[in-house]
Write a protein that binds this DNA or RNA. Structure first.
Lengths: 358, 358
DNA sequence: CTGAAAGCGCTTACAG
DNA sequence: CTGAAAGCGCTTACAG
């Protein structure tokens, strides 16, 4: 069936193009009778707008506000979602979309509040946000809902909000995968330890769930492999960290593996003897280096570039085509080791999805 | 700097819009003097075409020809690249792009030839092809080059051709990753075996390279872990395969792992005792089932959905924006196990990149 | 070699 | 409540 134009629909209905336009966009000022007549013809012919022509004619501008942490000296994790967003934007900018960033400090709740206010002030048409501070986010999000600004969670999913979707990893299952891999390195009754930092290093919720997944895997499948916990402040002086770890290992000689549920594994990986298997999260630059030095067995990657890319496209489809996204989009739980890192990091850094992104 | 329109460029140059258009598109019929004047203004203002308006005005139609194997009863591998292509197409169809498929039988060289001829006959504007039959492809590809039809290799890379790019996995490194994972299951002097089928099961080149990567890893890093080879016809009767395998294991009691470099691992996985670790390629439905039954330790995925998606976008950018792609885009070497399969297969099947693809 | 005009399929004021 | 006209930023004949 040939695709009809508005003009043709108008002719079939004996009305003007303007009236058809009103019906299509649910604008007021059309008699019920006319509306129905036109709607019928639209339905019968499965008419749909040509988004190209629509974008050109309306010259409507859309702004997407992005509220995520900025890249930090201690972790360049947030570089990747940022790049993914940029790559996604490059694919939609011709439709009049622009992106405004509000980058907060992932170690500073107050900066989240400030950036959020600026975001609201800017009155974007849609928002992508990583609400890593659950409490602050819960306070601020109503500002978006009042203004009817659609928003989409990335990285961290908060429950009880009317976000149009969530893009990120299933953290619990990420912990399960880490445990499954760790188990490969444990002897019959070998123990592993979850290394936690005392510091508030962003994203509590994800870390909490990863730990849950890890423990649950062992409790269910390998209860004989005990799981211990060790707290080390990642802000401590190096000798202090070292001696803490040494003391722990002496006290627990059966420990054969260390699981770091945050992205901070490279801070500690040099302090462990080779016989101990290390598994951690996130392909930050320093983690990749530690992996390549052989200090780490596996990293689990969030594919955060893809998350950013996808979040933008979902919001684009929502705003432009009124396409309702699914409630959540879980990104791959990618297992990274020395031998395949160059392909994943390549993918992230050089953006295979949107090639030649600068 | 505000983005100028053709009209404004024309005014600055004291010419008509049509003339500016001719310069932009390198059309003939413009005096050198005028061309230079206009080009200067274009450069100075960093003018670039509005692709939306361009697509609308020209109502130029592009056809992408796709030459890949069709889904087969024995392996649904090619379902995924197909879906990726469909998802990519959905993102570009508004620009006047359509896709025509020429699906050949991956077990029948002659069907490749026939489909290739039909493809050429259809005179597409660009081509995505998986040249799994190297010899036939080498004979047919000149037909595209004669007609100056740009083409892009997917899945299999042939050398010595002027393809605009390649999207696929680095098969050698895929084999290396398989070996690295296998090594985790081997004891000090444990042996592993490469299980090859005699049958021509598509994609020889990839399988050959995977075997090379696998062997090279062990030869370099773990020479004490011997690598054997076993041939089993995957078309044989089940009892025959079983007895062949049983005899082999009896003759080689030190075998602790089996590597299947093709996508056919699920054909054999039920015949091995649990103590033997199996590692194979490709997340076909039957392989996923075997993984979930616990018969297989790891699968290595090609992310073939993504390959199709990306191939389409690369060709789109090439045809519409004249953007030259890189020579090759290696897709992720994804490690899949029971615990993360639902996220990767979810990604593939439900298309997280292009959400809600039917 | 160059320009003026019509048109791509919509949207946006404006008039009635 | 409805229509006629102009315009979005290009491209395409056609005329000269």
């Amino acid at each position: 069936m040939k695709k009809l134009t508005i003009k043709e629909i108008a002719q079939l209905a004996n009305v003007s193009e303007g009236t058809v336009d009103r019906v299509i966009h649910n604008r007021s000022g059309v008699s019920e009778r006319t509306r129905q007549k036109i709607q019928q013809i639209i339905d019968r012919h499965e008419f749909s707008l040509n988004p190209i022509a629509s974008a050109l004619a309306s010259s409507r501008q859309y702004t997407i506000g992005v509220l995520i942490p900025r890249k930090d000296i201690r972790s360049d994790y947030w570089e990747m979602p940022y790049r993914g967003i940029e790559a996604g934007w490059a694919r939609i900018k011709d439709f009049g979309f622009s992106v405004r960033y509000f980058l907060y400090d992932q170690f500073d709740e107050a900066s989240f509040d400030t950036c959020f206010d600026q975001l609201v002030e800017a009155a974007p048409d849609g928002v992508i946000l990583a609400p890593i501070f659950a409490r602050e986010a819960a306070q601020k999000i109503p500002l978006l809902e009042e203004r009817q600004i659609p928003y989409l969670f990335m990285d961290t999913q908060l429950v009880g909000f009317e976000s149009i979707s969530f893009v990120g990893q299933d953290s619990f299952e990420g912990g399960v995968v880490a445990a499954r891999l760790m188990q490969l390195f444990l002897s019959e009754k070998g123990k592993s330890v979850i290394l936690q930092t005392r510091q508030n290093i962003s994203n509590h919720d994800a870390i909490f769930k990863r730990i849950g997944g890890y423990q649950s895997f062992f409790a269910t499948n390998y209860p004989q492999n005990e799981v211990l916990t060790l707290f080390v402040a990642d802000t401590a002086a190096i000798p202090e960290m070292q001696s803490q770890i040494r003391a722990f290992l002496e006290a627990h000689p059966a420990v054969e593996g260390v699981f770091v549920p945050s992205s901070r594994i490279s801070t500690f990986s040099g302090f462990f003897p080779n016989r101990i298997a290390l598994i951690g999260f996130d392909t930050t630059t320093s983690n990749i280096n530690a992996l390549e030095r052989g200090e780490i067995k596996f990293l689990i990657s969030q594919k955060s570039f893809d998350q950013g890319f996808q979040a933008v496209l979902l919001l684009f489809d929502y705003l432009l085509y009124k396409k309702i996204p699914r409630r959540q989009y879980f990104s791959d739980i990618e297992i990274v080791l020395k031998e395949n890192i160059k392909y994943t990091s390549f993918a992230n850094n050089n953006s295979k999805i949107f090639p030649d992104f600068k």
